[in-house]
Design a protein around this nucleic acid. Structure first.
Length: 567
RNA sequence: CGGGGUGUAGCGAAGCCUGGUUAUCGCACGUGCUUUGGGAGCACGAGACCGUCGGUUCGAAUCCGACCACCCCGACCA
């Protein structure tokens, strides 16, 4: 491809309002352009990288027996009503009416459609197991798009669906996808860690997210370097320290004016925060007030809390009025004397004697509150966030916290969607059974961005060979002085064209100064930069620079032709 | 949805506070000549209803109001 003809431009200055390296470089080097918040065009360079990433995913899905198909982007709303998700999902699901007034949705994913297809096609156990997948545009009206291709509203996802006779079959399919993901991300040049994750609105019995560690990642991961324990903080178990062995003391009121925060309360009474209990108030989607009690020094984990109370549509913070209506006082709240609320107590609080807690009066707390004696929890569960240095739930060593970007997930769905669609098969036993599903997603564009995150330097992108849009970047210098330079450059370009689509090279034939050409070559990031000039020819051939390592050598023209062909 | 910020040419910015000729600069772009190993030089040129709508004023990029868009933090997030 001649750079003089390529539909692209590089930007000399950093775009304003851009934070992440991948966002900045993909814009500056002419791979992508925004059309709206979280909506991007892929320019030819971006499209080629995208296609290479898809190709790798494709090969690894095919290797485990995946069959590629394609399902629609626009769905009748009824199929989402049947699965219950039409009501369970908020504004990120875009709903609209067609010309006849029928309710439609823009698909966020395709479990419902797979369920319907299974109901239509699969009749017998002999047709199972099977695995289907497609690459399809998803529209999710995210509350906030950010970080370029990392979090967008429209994006292409590979979503795969395993269909099995039973849980044992699902386990096998799930493991196959797990292994396929490991191979896929390795080929993309991404270092990932698979973490246990929340099953959320999807239900199901287990899930992993594949995470790339990145300080700008949106998820917090709990990792143990000693034993390899890895979980999303949303679900990471906490190993509790032993409760203090202490007899329960009589409860007593204490004046604590102006102590609406745990920090001020602990300072006022001159006690550690660990000797306090704090209350946090939430409301479920169906209007139940939830009072969560955790030790003062810990944070409430909303995912765990939500799961503990079976809040299928999540939680929102309660208002002061809602808290008071249940007989509690914001800032001085506790379940003592409260009514009409579900009380969820963290395991650690339940095991800790003589804590300071609110007395539901402004400026007053109780000393020596004891769970069970002073109030009765509706639920006792682990509802706090793991912290750096907490003991690992598996081996007891200290865990570390890291941020991560989710590049893929795998999910044991079970029969939720096949039940909704009535997708059953006749087993060997002559009876009907529901088909057991799993679902497996990889966001293509986000992976492109993550590859840039992990493969760039201050000069620009440095693509790994397997995802680079072109095999090499050829810079011709002094072609107007020495006709041999142009002649050789043309020849190398032709060698790439003849060697196959992914062996094409970028040929900078523009009438630009050497500085511009080198700067652009480094920014665009092809794995090899080839320089042809009177000087290189005098030195015996072509100067070859490894973009990632900076290693430079002069090679013969024949060697360079072999390199372009992939030798 | 809450908080903060920004909208002036393709990109990056100045001008706005303190209203007043033809809106400024760098890069990019066009033409010509020179130039080719690290973001070239000279000359000429084109490109902006100053986010939108409304208001104040003799006069608005500038002051006021509403709206829209984008970015950041949070909420949210298979």
């Amino acid at each position: 491809m001649r750079l003089s003809q390529l539909f692209f431009t590089t930007l000399r200055d950093d775009p304003a309002d851009v934070e992440m390296a991948s966002h900045r470089l993909l814009l500056r080097a002419g791979y992508i352009r925004p059309l709206g918040s979280g909506i991007y065009s892929l320019l030819p360079l971006g499209k080629r990288v995208n296609d290479r990433v898809e190709q790798i995913i494709h090969e690894e899905q095919d290797r485990i027996g995946g069959q590629e198909m394609e399902m629609p982007v626009v769905h009748p709303a009824d199929i989402w009503r049947a699965s219950g998700r039409y009501d369970a999902i908020g504004a990120e699901l875009t709903r609209f009416k067609d010309r006849n007034g029928r309710d439609m949705v823009l698909a966020m994913t395709h479990e419902e459609v797979v369920g319907i297809l299974l109901a239509d096609i699969v009749k017998s156990y002999r047709q199972l197991p099977l695995m289907v997948y497609h690459f399809q545009t998803k529209w999710r009206d995210e509350p906030r798009a950010r970080a370029g291709l990392i979090r967008v509203r429209e994006f292409v996802m590979k979503d795969a669906y395993s269909c099995d006779r039973d849980e044992a079959g699902l386990d096998i399919s799930y493991q196959a996808q797990y292994d396929a993901y490991v191979r896929t991300f390795e080929r993309l040049g991404l270092k990932t860690v698979a973490v246990a994750s929340d099953v959320g609105i999807m239900g199901g019995s287990g899930a992993h997210e594949f995470m790339v560690l990145n300080p700008a990642g949106e998820d917090v991961l709990v990792l143990c370097e000693a034993c390899g324990y890895a979980a999303n903080r949303q679900v990471a178990r906490i190993e509790h320290p032993k409760a203090a062995a202490e007899a329960a003391l009589p409860r007593e009121e204490v004046e604590t004016p102006g102590t609406t925060t745990i920090a001020s309360l602990a300072a006022f009474l001159d006690i550690p925060e660990t000797r306090t209990a704090k209350a946090a108030f939430f409301v479920t989607g169906d209007g139940r007030l939830v009072t969560a009690i955790v030790r003062g020094d810990l944070e409430v984990n909303e995912t765990k809390l939500s799961n503990a109370v079976g809040a299928s549509t999540g939680l929102r913070p309660a208002t002061a009025e809602e808290i008071k209506a249940a007989g509690m006082e914001p800032g001085y709240g506790s379940p003592i004397g409260a009514h009409d609320t579900t009380v969820v107590v963290d395991e650690l609080v339940a095991a800790s004697p003589n804590l300071v807690a609110g007395a539901n009066k402004v400026g007053v707390h109780y000393r020596s509150v004891n769970v069970g004696r002073d109030f009765t929890p509706d639920v006792t569960a682990d509802i706090t966030n793991a912290r750096e240095g907490d003991p690992c739930p598996t081996c007891g060593k200290s865990v570390i916290l890291r941020n991560g970007i989710e590049v893929g997930n795998i999910f044991k769905l079970g029969t939720k969607f096949t039940d909704a669609a009535g997708a059953t098969y006749l087993g060997e036993d002559g009876k009907e059974h529901p088909i057991v599903m799993g679902s497996y997603g990889i966001g293509v564009g986000r992976n492109v961005a993550c590859v840039v995150e992990d493969h760039h330097d201050e000069k620009g992108i440095a693509w790994p060979e397997e995802v680079a849009p072109y095999a090499a970047h050829l810079v011709a210098i002094g072609a107007n002085k020495d006709p041999q330079v142009a002649e050789i450059a043309e020849r190398l370009h032709a060698v790439g064209e003849a060697a196959g689509y992914w062996r094409h090279i970028l040929y900078d034939d523009r009438n630009e100064s050497p500085g511009v050409k080198f700067t652009d070559a480094e920014m665009l990031g092809m794995p090899w930069i080839l320089t042809v000039s009177p000087r290189s020819l005098a030195a015996g051939g072509i100067e070859v620079t490894n973009r990632a390592t900076g290693e430079r050598s002069t090679r013969s023209i024949e060697d360079v032709e072999a390199l372009i062909r992939g030798g």
